[in-house]
Amino acid sequence: MSPLPPTPSQTAEAVKTLMLSQDSFSKMLGLEVDEVGPGYCRLHFVVRPDMLNGFGALHGGVTFAAADTAFAFACNSHGRQSVGLTVTIDYLEAGRPGDVLTVEASELSLKHKVGVYQVRVSNQHGVALALFKGTAYRTSHEIIP
């Protein structure tokens, strides 16, 4: 008797574990993944002094990188290696030192070769700091055989 195939949630969790084990950049940023599921990821991090720009606000590159990481977990969660085709970000408010930011990626559309995702970055007060939209190309490579 062959084992049952993994559930979509189990696949998402396995992909997250594999990706995190090889993602030194996300570790350096202190990103903590709270939840993954099919087409979904929520993570958080604390804004540190070394993440600030010359005006004392969170550097846009850090915000972008955190959103891009959540996007990557969400679009790869189905078990097929996916890569970003196009991403955009709108910065709405500045992050400040000590803020706890939540980054939540949700799948808007999933087709055979393309997935579209929206990522919201918000602070501990629920204020939206950025909105990120990503389109991913889904390769035929299975991440978890």
Rank of each mutant, 00 (worst) to 15 (best):
P3S: 14
L4W: 00
P5K: 02
P5Y: 03
T7V: 01
S9A: 10
E13I: 05
A14L: 13
K16I: 03
T17K: 03
L18T: 02
M19H: 11
L20M: 14
Q22H: 10
Q22I: 00
S24E: 13
F25C: 11
S26G: 15
S26Y: 05
S26A: 15
K27T: 08
L31T: 02
L31P: 03
L31E: 04
E32K: 13
E35A: 08
G39F: 05
Y40R: 14
C41R: 12
R42C: 07
R42F: 01
H44R: 11
V46H: 03
R48A: 14
M51L: 14
N53A: 08
F55I: 07
G60Y: 03
G60H: 02
G60A: 07
G61K: 11
G61Y: 04
T63N: 08
F64T: 11
F64W: 10
F64A: 13
F64N: 05
A65E: 12
A67R: 09
D68L: 13
D68P: 07
A70L: 11
A70W: 09
F71S: 10
A72F: 04
F73K: 05
A74K: 10
A74P: 14
N76C: 08
H78E: 07
R80W: 01
S82G: 08
V83Y: 12
V83D: 12
L85T: 10
L85I: 13
V87W: 03
V87L: 12
T88W: 02
T88H: 10
I89A: 02
Y91G: 07
Y91V: 06
Y91A: 06
Y91I: 03
L92P: 01
L92R: 06
L92H: 04
E93H: 14
R96L: 15
P97G: 13
P97N: 12
D99E: 07
V103S: 02
E104V: 09
S106R: 15
E107V: 08
E107P: 03
L108W: 01
L108A: 08
L108Q: 13
S109N: 12
K111W: 00
K111D: 00
H112F: 03
H112V: 01
H112S: 15
H112D: 11
K113A: 07
K113S: 13
K113H: 10
V114H: 00
V116T: 12
V116M: 13
Y117D: 14
Y117V: 06
Q118W: 00
V119C: 11
V119P: 08
V119E: 14
R120Y: 00
V121D: 01
V121W: 02
S122V: 06
G126H: 06
G126E: 06
A128G: 05
A128Y: 00
A128K: 13
L131I: 12
F132E: 09
K133M: 15
A136T: 03
Y137T: 01
R138G: 00
E142Q: 14
I143K: 04
I144T: 11
I144K: 02
P145E: 08
P145H: 06
